[in-house]
Structure formats: C-alpha cells, structure tokens
Amino acid sequence: MKCAQVRELFGAYWDDEITQGEREWIESHFAGCPACREEYEGYARTLELVGSLPREEAAPDLLERVLARTRRAAASPDRLPIPRAAWVPVTAAAALAMLVIAALSPWMPIRPRATKDANPATPAPREAVAILTPARTGESRMPGAASHATSRGGSLVADSLFDHSEDVDFILDPGTVRRGHVRPVSPHPSTVQGERAVISF
C-alpha cells in the first residue's frame, strides 16, 4: 500500500510540486525499497527521453499565411467563423416550420379543427371528414358550414358541416368506397359519377 502511495506521488516529486513532508517521506521510502527506487528511475528516464525531443520550429511562412487569412476575415466580417448560440438555429428552424405550416394550411385537405374553432359547440366528425373530403375547400367556400346545430341531451350536435342551400361536391375516398363503407344512398337527390358525388339539398 505504501509503495502505491509513493508511486502516485512520482509526478509531483519530479516536478517539485510537493510539500517538504512528502519529499522526506518519499526519500525515506526509496532508501528501504529498491523496487520503488528502480521504478522511479525508469520514470525519470522516460521524462528525460520526452525532454530530449527537439523542438519543432514554426513553418517559415506561418505568419504570412495567418495574416493573409486575418486580412480576408477583416475584409468580409460576415464570413468570420463566429460561433452562434446553440438556440439560434433551433429557434429559427422552429419559426420557419411554423411559417410553412401557416402558409400551407389553407390548402391542407383535412381541417377537422377549423370547424370546431369557428363554433366550439360543433365538433367535426373525424371519420366523416376523412372519408368525405369536400372538393371546395376554405372557409369562404362554405359560408354556412357548421352553422346548423341541434341540441341533443343538453349538448349541441352539428347536423351538417355544410350549407344546405347549395350543392356540395364531395370526393369520395376510393379505398372506403371499395370497402363499401360509403354508398351513394341518401334521402336527398344525389348523383354519383365515378368517385365524385354531388349531393343537392
């Protein structure tokens, strides 16, 4: 145990970064421990080898190259490699994503929340919207959308998402039509052409 403690102090002993008490303790240990003494001699020889390495000189044109680069950097400060705070690109990316979403939202085919926002009492039936996608999109194209609601059991339930005063053009989801979930059967007059149904009210 004592040998291990002494060997831990070899570095500080070599560098003279040690207290007088530690120095005396190490030297008294060396006097009675040839193994540690030999180990320290190897340690010292290693450091002599490292110290004998020649110093590498700078490249003769180093100053010139550095000055050329700093002149370029000073001439176009916007090209300086100044580190930016880590949150800047993240925030910029998030802001850009928000802008893109906002810009594209009028063209997004499914807007189940839009109706809800217009009137919180008229929840949009998600499945119906997924199956029947109005060909005419946008709030202005559906002036009466979600305007008709009836009260059932104390809660307001929408009886239609669309204005009953005009025809509504639907694109039927082909997959759903094939599975037979939606049939062009309606109490209202309707016309089905291929995958498109026009329902008149």
């Binding site: 060997r7 500080a12 070599w14 560098d15 970064e17 190897g42 290693t46 450091l47």
Partner: peptide, 15 residues
C-alpha cells in the same frame, strides 16, 4: 496532478 502522473506511467510502460 493525477493526469500527468497517469500519462507518464502509461508512457513509461510503452517505452
């Protein structure tokens, strides 16, 4: 202090 000592011991073993 400990890193220097450790590095030198590693170097000594290698050499």
């Amino acid at each position: 202090r400990s890193r220097i000592n450790r590095a030198r011991s590693m170097l000594k073993r290698k050499l």
